[in-house]
Design a binder for these strands. Sequence first.
RNA 1: GCUCCCUUCGUCUAGCGGUCUAGGACGCGGCCCUCUCAAGGCUGAAACACGGGUUCGAUUCCCGUAGGGAGCGCCA
Length: 475
Amino acid sequence: MTEPVVTRFAPSPTGFLHIGGARTALFNWLYARHTGGKMLLRIEDTDRERSTTAAINAIIDGLTWLGLTWDGEPVFQFSRAGRHREVAEQLLAAGKAYRCYASAEELTAMREAARREGRSKLYDGRWRDRDPSEAPPGVKPVIRLKAPLTGETVIEDQVQGRVTWQNSDLDDLVLLRSDGNPTYMLAVVVDDHDMDVTHVIRGDDHFTNAARQKQIYDALGWNVPRFAHIPLIHGPDGSKLSKRHGALGVDAYRAMGYLPEAMRNYLVRLGWAHGDQEIFTTEEMIAAFDLPAIGRSPARFDFAKLESLNGHYIRQTADIDLVAALEGLLPHIAGGDQLATRMTPALRAKLIAAMPGLKERAKTLIELFETSRFVWTDRPIEIDEKALALLTPQAKASIGALLPELQALSDWTAPAVEMVVRGFAERSGAKLGAVAQPLRAALTGRTTSPPIFDVLAVLGRDESLARLADQTVTS
RNA sequence: GCUCCCUUCGUCUAGCGGUCUAGGACGCGGCCCUCUCAAGGCUGAAACACGGGUUCGAUUCCCGUAGGGAGCGCCA
């Protein structure tokens, strides 16, 4: 009889949900799903100065977009301050904690001395056994944990393995601040315990915290959850992720035209692998995911691979869903209103018809937006420079000669149009490319597009003929 | 400085003592396909940081060195 797994994602709402946080959330979600357990969401908003509701919304939006759902209502850590205080008092009463009246100046002096002497233990425990009657008047004390002086603290980490700290290197951490508010160290322990969290999966920037938290668990006599500290994500140059690289909010990735399923697939392969498999459906991911398979070295963020994956998922998405995704993105991108304001059921149908040709060629929804422009732009269409170069006098003459044959066509489908154009090319002794490229330029205003016969079919008879006619008028 | 962690192609990674002339993917080069661009197929270049051990045998285990990272608050 094993206990049900409970994981949690515990962001602090001081900014957007960045890529590292998104992956942490993904891993927590995957592990919970894999084991049939739950993932809880806890907002660590005890830093009243920096926590904002805008950040809370950004985090929730980001998780929702990524499709990472949590169980139950989010827990707001600050609302539990009373409980945290109570636990600190309990520790105090049990003699496992003590009041410390050291001033900020004393603390600074201790830190400097420790550093100078090459010691890692910063606080010297001067109030540990001192009689409370010696307390200086008017000073509000903090409550510190009476941490073990000797022996070692061991963490059996699911990712990092067994890691040991000498207790002599760890000092008495503050549990309750002088203003009566809990520290992060106390709050996490109490909340994880009260929320019945069995697995703490978080970035390994929290790794050294785990040792100190273990000491709090031990003092309380509580069971220690399983820890899994996952390596951090670095920028392409191996340095810390900055805004220039990938430390953007997940909303930025959405605006760049990435699909949530592509993000998930990219993120899950950062630090985790399942043999040689690169592409995972959500179900496959859940089935295969496991903590010990997570690597221990940090990964670099690589846009090229994300793009490649995104292209794969775009190609795989049903045409109708892709158009829906594109429409959903319109409000978030520059120029998106150009298409949004034109959208009608008829245009939507046209776009869906164009998708098979377009999605083969797009790495992001932004590209899809750009390459679909020929479908929804109005005549006379804008012709870019390279396309203009294709429309030589001879090319225009060729279009002019082909036009009547197309006009005579009653069955306006890609195969029918193809027969006409191929026949025309053969009879005029030209290669297909020599007639196709000018057509492409005239119909799409670009030198690249989906197969030209598909373009003709998607545009429809009237629009196609009109665009071609536009180019045969010599100016 | 101290504590802890990490180190396989440019990047993400497989590898858990012999199967390694080190595999896959992205990216890059070439070829094929082809109306353009893609996609797809085939193909090429590309890595076990270094030095010691342990072992009959190390990419795999141990110890150093170098490099990188995280933490070291009455922040989270």
